[in-house]
Amino acid sequence: MPRYEQVANDLRARIYAGEYEIGTTLPTYAELTELFGVGRGVISSALGLLEREGLIRVVKRAGIRVLDWRIQRRRISRGQSVMRDPYRGYVFPAASHAGEPWVMHGKAHRSYEPAPDRIAHLLGVEPGIAVLRRRRVTSPANEPPFQIVDTWLSPEAVRDAPMVAEASTGLGGYIDRLEEAGHGPISWTEHSRAKIPSREEAALLDISGESAALELTLIGTSAASGKAVDVTVRVIPADRAELVTELRRDDSAQWPVSPVTPRPEEGSG
């Protein structure tokens, strides 16, 4: 076994045993090289392995933090139903359970930000143009940050429904305001992909920059213009969620199977 794997195994065992508690820091690079009698390169490789496993996060000038590895993976049901709550408005498939309290980490932010290339493409605007972004970081109560939620609203959406740019968008939320402004009924499509989080995303989610993240992008399309009026992007640590989809039988796959007439042999009359 390579020496860096031996070091990683030792540190992993110490973390699981509680010798290095969650939220504390590991010894410094210099202390680890002395502890294991190896060079800095071996320590760097061992820590990189533990980072990719989501056990630690190396933060410049702050040390090597031990992350909460006990958090259970949550299931996100990817059904096709969009429901509606009379008070909260539209409810999309999520990782929350009925009645489970969720909290916000920090404050919700509203700001005009340069549209990243992908967001600009989806909204049909020039890359880099200032677009309204509503951001919040949330999780179940008493858990570390679970997701970053960024909602980008097209300039037309803000023009037609100015209330979407305010702190409180009123009963039902910003989607109700968009539909009331003439864009209803809005339809949605969702794209899912894996990605490496940006440095900012890793910091907000308190995860290693080496860890994979799950990105769910929900595109809301106006019935009036046929164009996207909002794009909501959720970034979730990949080791904390799994997508679950219930498969349904098509009419052609109903059971019991109907008798099938044998195909005529090739070349027969």
Score class of each variant (00 low, 15 high):
Gly89Arg: 12
Tyr174Leu: 12
Ile196Pro: 00
Ala98Ser: 13
Thr217Asp: 02
Arg65Leu: 11
His121Cys: 01
Ser268Glu: 11
Arg249Asp: 09
Arg74Gln: 05
Gly184Gln: 01
Glu5Lys: 13
Phe36Glu: 04
Trp102Leu: 12
Val125Pro: 06
Leu26Val: 02
His191Lys: 10
Leu204Asn: 01
Ser187Lys: 10
Ser44Val: 00
Arg61Leu: 05
Ile148Ser: 09
Pro144Thr: 00
Leu178Cys: 02
Glu5Asp: 08
Trp102Phe: 14
Glu166Ile: 00
Pro144Tyr: 00
Gln80Gly: 12
Ala108Ile: 13
Ala130Phe: 09
Ala203Phe: 01
Leu243Val: 10
Gly37Thr: 03
Thr189Tyr: 03
Thr261Ala: 14
Gly220Met: 07
Tyr90Leu: 15
Arg65Glu: 13
Ala17Tyr: 00
Glu215Met: 11
Tyr29Arg: 11
Arg74Tyr: 04
Ser268Met: 02
Gly172Gln: 04
Glu34Met: 03
Glu156Thr: 14
Arg75Pro: 00
Ile148Asn: 09
Tyr90Val: 10
Arg74Cys: 06
Glu201Gln: 14
Ala108Val: 14
Glu51Leu: 05
Val82Asn: 04
Ile56Tyr: 03
Val91Pro: 00
Arg135Trp: 02
Val231Ser: 01
Glu179Ala: 05
Arg110His: 13
Glu156Val: 12
Ala62Asp: 09
Ser96Gly: 10
Met104Gln: 15
Ser208Asn: 04
Val103Leu: 09
Arg263Pro: 04
Gln80Phe: 11
Pro116Gln: 05
Met1His: 08
Gly124Thr: 07
Lys107Arg: 14
Glu126Ile: 10
Ala223Trp: 04
Ile196Thr: 14
Gly124Gln: 07
Ala94Asn: 15
Tyr29Ile: 12
Arg248Ser: 07
Ile219Leu: 10
Ala46Ile: 09
Gly124Trp: 07
Thr24Ser: 14
Leu204Ser: 05
Gly220Ser: 11
Gly41Ala: 14
Ile43Pro: 03
Glu51Arg: 08
Ser258Cys: 00
Glu143Gln: 15
Leu216Asp: 03
Phe92Cys: 06
Leu50Tyr: 03
Val244Asn: 02
Val260Phe: 04
Trp188Ile: 08
Gly41Ser: 15
